[in-house]
Design a protein around this nucleic acid. Structure first.
Lengths: 235, 235
DNA sequence: ACCTGAACACCGTTCAAGT
DNA sequence: ACCTGAACACCGTTCAAGT
């Protein structure tokens, strides 16, 4: 009877429930504190129960990545390739911003999950069909865009990723560019000061991340469009 | 007496020796199998002895990163900013290729080490002094180049990082683009086939990484030069 | 004062014993 | 057949006991 209460109290485990609980845990506690044991505890389950739904921790991470990739909007329809690619990449960026652990997880996993392959495949399709790119140019463009295709902002240092959004990550104030560092790195101090925003550090919070992302994205997209128009080929 | 032999047999520990041993261990065994305990064993020392030279594992990683950054050549002298930046970034890339774990380590650390700040500072200096960039443009360019400034190839998937260069990483052949995946991802299969090289996968070994890196780098540098010439400003 | 063994609080995962 | 507790082989780091 107590058994029956138990089974009724929580919906039964499923791969989906495991994956989404893991994503939620990583979102709020940071990826470095996601462990099989803590995840199991979160789900009110014994650690080994997870292994019925994921083969191991790496497969759990793959599944989590696919959950995030699944949040990217499908391409909008438009005559030109450029706005389609642009908007989809910005949608990918939004998904990644919701899950700050995802970029390092994806890069560290270093394995194409089916969801990522599907996303990239669809992006190549847009280049080819909407933009008339040669396979040759499309290939190099995919390399050149790299992980930016997935919305990575590629910032070298980014506090947003350090811990959960709600967690007490930094007791210290964001700090900006400390005076003693300004003396040692005058050029960095200068461009930090040039930023339109107050406590901007070189790369990181304080700068308008969205502006910087779109600046870099458009620099690439415009360069690519120029190559496309002049019929660039590597051979 | 046996004591004396012991002390003579190995040079005494130092921060430098610890750091270089850690880099060597990560190079050949992969960063994921670098542990304080294994590193100590490698140095013929009890684990706790390491803590005399590094505060903890994070500080060890910072030190390792600085070793790698220290391998980047100083800037060459040239009239134009573009070849100076280009050559230095390619030198950074060479350093990172020698230490495949470094990119993820740097991104995961998410903390600017002094060596990295110094490198970035010097790159801004080149833009400002050799190229006459405004602080405003230099700032956005640093964001746009992002980790590519440090020679990251930013490939989404890259076998070279998976394990040590000499280690028995992949018993399986590199595989290229498997037939069943080709059916599911036709566009990826198409561009893989378009690559001038045999078993090219979308992104990864088989492609000419050096070509792809320089293609992307020049796309960015040319775009930046165009902005510079037209006196671009964000305000 | 310095060094270090044992211990602590964790991991991911195996495996055999329970139902 | 399924589930799961205990165990194994690891971690990074603290701490107290040794010299």
């Amino acid at each position: 009877m107590a058994e029956q209460v138990e089974t009724l109290r929580r919906t039964p485990l499923s791969r989906d429930r495991v994956l989404h609980a893991a994503v939620a845990l990583a979102d709020e506690a940071g990826i470095e504190s996601l462990s099989m044991r803590k995840l199991a505890q979160e789900l009110g389950v014994v650690p080994m129960a997870l292994y019925k739904h994921v083969a191991n921790k790496d497969e759990l991470l793959d599944g989590m990545i696919d959950v995030v990739v699944g949040e990217i909007d499908p391409p909008v329809s438009d005559a030109d390739w450029q706005p389609v690619v642009r908007r989809r990449i910005l949608s990918a960026r939004e998904a990644l911003l919701r899950h700050p652990w995802a970029p390092i997880a994806i890069e560290a996993r270093n394995q194409a999950t089916p969801a990522i392959l599907g996303y990239l495949n669809s992006m190549v399709g847009i280049l080819r069909e909407r933009g008339g790119f040669s396979t040759d140019l499309a290939h190099h463009v995919m390399h050149a865009m790299g992980s930016r295709m997935l919305g990575f902002s590629q910032e070298l240092f980014d506090d947003s990723r350090r811990a959960g959004r709600s967690g007490p990550a930094d007791p210290e104030p964001p700090a900006g560019f400390p005076p003693e560092a300004a003396a040692a790195f005058p050029h960095l101090a200068a461009i930090a000061g040039a930023a339109a925003h107050d406590d901007a550090s070189v790369v990181g919070p304080g700068c308008d991340d969205q502006f910087e992302f779109e600046f870099a994205l458009d620099l690439l997209l415009d360069g690519v469009e120029r190559l496309r128009q002049q019929g660039w080929t590597s051979t």
